[in-house]
């Protein structure tokens, strides 16, 4: 039985191994920093074009929207660095029967699949997103208080857990569908919702993406905490929904795992 301490140690070892593997391909590392930066610039350009024509969108000014987009980028890049690289390998592991090697190890398979790889490049982009967010806050003349800053960090972690839950759920489809590479496209498509100001959504869309898939909360609540101060009910809502999503996706993964048929003879 693996204890939490044992798992943390295992993760650190895996991180060290993955980091040395990453740094063996330095040109690739810089190339991916540029790629991710280009996608972030694209989002900022979109904000720039929209706010050329309007003063505010759903009550969010240009600088507030930049804080929202930067927060979303920060969460997504941290997720892309630590958890996503391992998860996206699951369809290949299942299809080629290589999951056998994971299942034979004395640690929870979900943990091993999730933490097996690391990408360092996204961390540089997370830092750039943080700088862009700080500059936008500076333009808004906002200096976050210590409690709101701590709450922001906690909410960023909750956002990470939401990203994790959704992608784990999507890649777990691979136990039913042989070629599930398009789930990555699905992840990127669905997570466009996280960049929307929450107030822009109404009706069933708002309910679906708040209570079932809490994507409207992932970046909105942390950004609003920095801009408008602590809002306990919203914070609680994000924490509860992200934990529920994480438990549901973990259940789905284990359900799929029961269908897995080893490829060995």
């Amino acid at each position: 039985m693996a204890t939490p301490f044992h798992l943390v140690r295992l993760w650190l070892i895996q991180l060290r191994y993955a980091a040395s593997r990453e740094l063996a391909f330095r040109a690739n590392f810089f190339a991916w920093v540029v790629v991710e930066l280009a996608w972030f610039v694209l989002q900022l350009a979109f904000v720039g074009v929209v706010y050329q024509h309007v003063e505010s969108v759903a009550g969010w000014s240009r600088q507030e929207m930049i804080v929202l987009v930067a927060t979303n980028q920060l969460i997504q890049q941290i997720f892309t660095a630590f958890l996503m690289p391992g998860l996206v390998k699951l369809p290949e592991l299942v299809r080629e029967g290589k999951l056998d090697f994971v299942l034979l190890k004395p640690a929870p398979p979900q943990f091993l699949v999730s933490t097996s790889h690391l990408e360092i490049g996204p961390l540089a982009n997370a830092a750039i997103a943080a700088v862009v967010g700080i500059l936008a806050l500076h333009d808004l003349h906002i200096t976050p208080t210590l409690p709101s800053l701590l709450a922001y960090l906690l909410l960023v972690l909750a956002g990470l857990l939401t990203h994790y839950a959704l992608l784990l759920g999507l890649v777990s489809l691979t136990f039913w569908i042989i070629q599930a590479e398009s789930v990555l496209l699905g992840y990127y498509s669905i997570f466009q919702v996280a960049r929307l100001p929450r107030e822009a959504a109404t009706g069933w869309f708002r309910i679906l993406f708040t209570l079932v898939l809490p994507l409207l909360l992932v970046a909105n609540i942390p950004a609003a905490t920095l801009i408008r101060g602590l809002q306990p009910s919203s914070i609680l809502l994000l924490l509860v929904t992200c934990l529920t999503a994480a438990f549901a996706s973990s259940f789905f993964f284990h359900l799929g795992l029961r269908r897995y048929q080893s490829a060995s003879s």
Binding site: S182, L185, I190, Q192
Partner: peptide, 19 residues
Amino acid sequence: WNYLLRALFSAMPLLVSWV
């Protein structure tokens, strides 16, 4: 299934654009 999923997900940006 892979194709159908891809097609379904491709409609997502339209939904986001609408909102």
